[in-house]
Design a protein around this nucleic acid. Structure first.
Lengths: 188, 188
DNA sequence: GAACGGACATATACTCTGTATATATACCCA
DNA sequence: TGGGTATATATACAGAGTATATGTCCGTTC
C-alpha cells in the first residue's frame, strides 16, 4: 500500500498528473524506492476506483490530472499519523534461509551464515565509503538506513551462529570466532 | 521467490505433497513467515510449469506428491549458496514516510519520527520480554532478529532527526534531545 | 448410530505489486 | 530532416498474498 499512500501524500498540495507524481516520488525518495511507470497509472486508476482521488479530465496539453477527494485526504492523514507496524523482522529471506538450512542440513547453516556475512560486510564497506562522500538529504537518509540495517544484520548473524554452536552441543567449544565480525557479547 | 526457493530446499530430502510442505515450512520458520495455503498449491503449479519439480500423481490416499527435478535441485543449491542481496534498506515504508513528510510538510517530519520511535520502542520492549522467556531455535532466531532490527531502526530515527535538525539551520540548537532513545553519537 | 467438529488435503478466485513494453507527441540539435 | 531525449499514458503479464470453497476421514458425544 506504500505507493498508494505516497501518491495521496504527494497530491496533498494540489492536483498532479501521473508523470509528475512519478517525478516527485523519485525526487523525494532518492534511489531507495525504484518506481516503474507501469505502477503509476494502475495505482491512479485504483485510487480513482476507490474514491480517494478524482480525475480532472485532460487539460489543454492532454495530461490527466487528479485531485484528492475528502476520503483520500483522510486516508493520507491516517497513513502519515500512524506508525509502520513491524514488517521489521517478518518475512526475512536470510532468516528463512538459515532456518531451512538448520532443518534440512544443520551442518550447512554456518556456511550460509558465513556467505551472508561476507556479502553484508561488503555492502557495509561500500555504503560507508558513499556516506563519506555526502549527498542530498534523501540519499543520505537512505545510506544511513542501509548502514544501520547492515550492522544489525551482522549482529544477528553472529548471534545466530552462537545459537547454532550452543545447539550443536557444548562438546567442542573450539576457537570458532575467527570469522565473527564483532567480539561475542552477552545479549541476555 | 522466497517461498518457491524454500519449497525446493524442503523437497531436497525426498518427495512431499502440498500440505506436508506447508507444515514443514511453518515448523522450520516459526512464526516469522505466515504462509497461506493458497500460495502452496499455486507455487507448486508454477514450479512444475518451470520444470523444477515433477508431480508423482495421486498416491493411494489421493495426495499429490512432487519430487525435485535436476533443474530444481540446481536452483535450490544456487539459492542456498548465494547471499541475499540487500533488500536491506530498499523499499522501506518508514523511510519513505519520513522523506515524503520532508518534502510536503517539513515541520511534520519530526512528528512522524517520534510516532515511529514510540511504536518501535514498544516493539522492542515486547520482544525483549519474549526473549527472556525462551523458546525453540526458529522462534529465538526470529526474536533476535526483530530485536536487532528494531534497535537499528531506533538508531536510524535518531540519526534522521539529527539530519533534519541540521537541515533546518543551525539557528535554534535548543535542547531537543529529550525524546531520543540513545545519546547522540558521532557516526562519521 | 447419527451428528458434529477438527485434522488432513487440494483448489480457485481475486487483489495488489511489480516489470516489461507499446505508443505518441514535442523539442532540441546536429 | 532526422534522430535522440524528455514528456506522457496505457496495457499485458507474472508473482505474491488473502479469502474462501470443497471434500474426506476420524474420533467424540448425545
Amino acid at each position: 500500500m506504500s505507493v498508494r499512500s505516497a501518491f495521496l501524500v504527494l497530491l496533498g498540495p494540489g492536483p498532479r498528473h501521473g508523470y509528475q507524481l512519478k517525478a516527485e516520488f523519485d525526487d523525494a525518495t532518492g534511489e531507495s524506492w525504484p518506481l516503474n511507470y507501469g505502477q503509476v497509472y494502475t495505482t491512479l486508476q485504483r485510487l480513482e476506483k476507490a474514491g480517494a482521488v478524482a480525475s480532472l479530465g485532460e487539460d489543454e496539453d492532454g495530461r490527466i490530472r487528479y485531485e484528492l477527494t475528502d476520503h483520500g485526504r483522510e486516508e493520507a492523514e491516517e497513513w502519515m499519523a500512524s506508525p509502520v507496524q513491524q514488517p521489521l523482522a517478518s518475512r526475512d529471506e536470510i532468516a528463512m534461509k538459515v532456518l531451512l538450512a538448520v532443518r534440512t542440513d544443520p551442518g550447512r547453516a554456518v556456511a550460509v551464515i558465513d556467505v551472508q556475512r561476507q556479502a553484508t560486510m561488503s555492502t557495509l564497506q561500500t555504503v560507508t565509503r558513499m556516506r563519506a562522500e555526502g549527498g542530498d538529504l534523501p540519499w543520505m537518509l537512505h545510506l544511513d538506513r542501509t548502514a544501520m540495517l547492515a550492522e544489525a544484520e551482522l549482529r544477528w548473524l553472529d548471534r545466530a551462529e552462537e545459537r547454532l554452536d550452543a545447539e550443536a552441543g557444548a562438546d567442542s567449544p573450539k576457537a570458532d570466532a575467527r570469522l565473527r565480525s564483532t567480539p561475542i557479547e552477552e545479549t541476555t
